[in-house]
Amino acid sequence: MRAALFPGLRGQGAFADRVAAIAIKTSAFLAIISLILIFVFIGKEALPLLTSAEVQAEASLSRLFLPQSPRPGTATEYTWQPISETPKYSLMPLFAGTLKVTIIAVLIAVPLAVAAALYTSEFAPPWVRETIKPCIEILAGIPSVVIGFFCLMVIAGWLHDAFGWTYRLNALTAGIGLSLAVIPIVYTVSEDAFSAVPQAFREGSVAMGASMWQTASRVVLPAAMPGILAACVLGFGRAIGETMIVLMASGNAAVLSWSPVDSVRTFSATIAAELGEVVQASPHYHVLFFLGAFLFVMTFTINLAGRWFVNRLQKKLQGAA
């Protein structure tokens, strides 16, 4: 292209172009290759759960997913207790804990973030928008360990003083901390979705005599709906993999219950807490990698779904506009 436009640049310029193209292509493929390698590595370390008889004797899939009785004759239960004379590796308390915290975080973050995005994109005067938007985006830059620490030291204390729950560190406390990490993502993606709604939609609506609120709630919001869904899904993906906040603020007891104010132990916190000192190639080690693979597949699928929603929104609006 460039050589055709500028015939004088043929030769050296074309060569530099090619080198640059190759460099950029390589770095793009490196990202894909490292993604594949990470997955292969995690998968390889998790695989003995399915193949090695020695590992299965302690941690077979049925032990991971079905209730087990700790001693013959006692009632069956789901227990995560890897350091024990008879190690117990039930994933159910961890799975339930992960979902509990994540859902709480999303339930708190989504209404707040979507409302904030609707306000800044539809109602706020420019100077307000220019203040709020960067502030929320800065929130995304706060290291999660700082949020976790804040949650542990401050939020947990407030909630405990106000409500007096038995456990000061619990799923709700961690979920509130986690929502601080989720809000910027949901806000940014929703705000993009609202901005992507063509101006003609609003003009048309106002021309029909609709108020600003009617335009925002009945025209802009429905048009941006796939984008909002994408925001929720991406926020969910962020929350499910987040480690430090839950490690610090959730209490980390692997309890299987419905109560949002019980302590919970999540997948990510379990890996962070236990992988450091686990005996290599022990069943416990392979189970932790299995958790990692599980988490990886989950976040990967969730992010893929999120991207799909975003693409659909773009197509729909382009088609409509």
């Binding site: 350091i83 560190l169 309890v255 236990e274």
Partner: peptide
Amino acid sequence: RENNSGTYVFFKEHVLANEDFAREIQTLP
């Protein structure tokens, strides 16, 4: 403490006589 800690193991061996910790016990890093 988290179960990767030497203190956890000491406590489990010397106080719990190697019995399991109860599930409700919260662990902190």
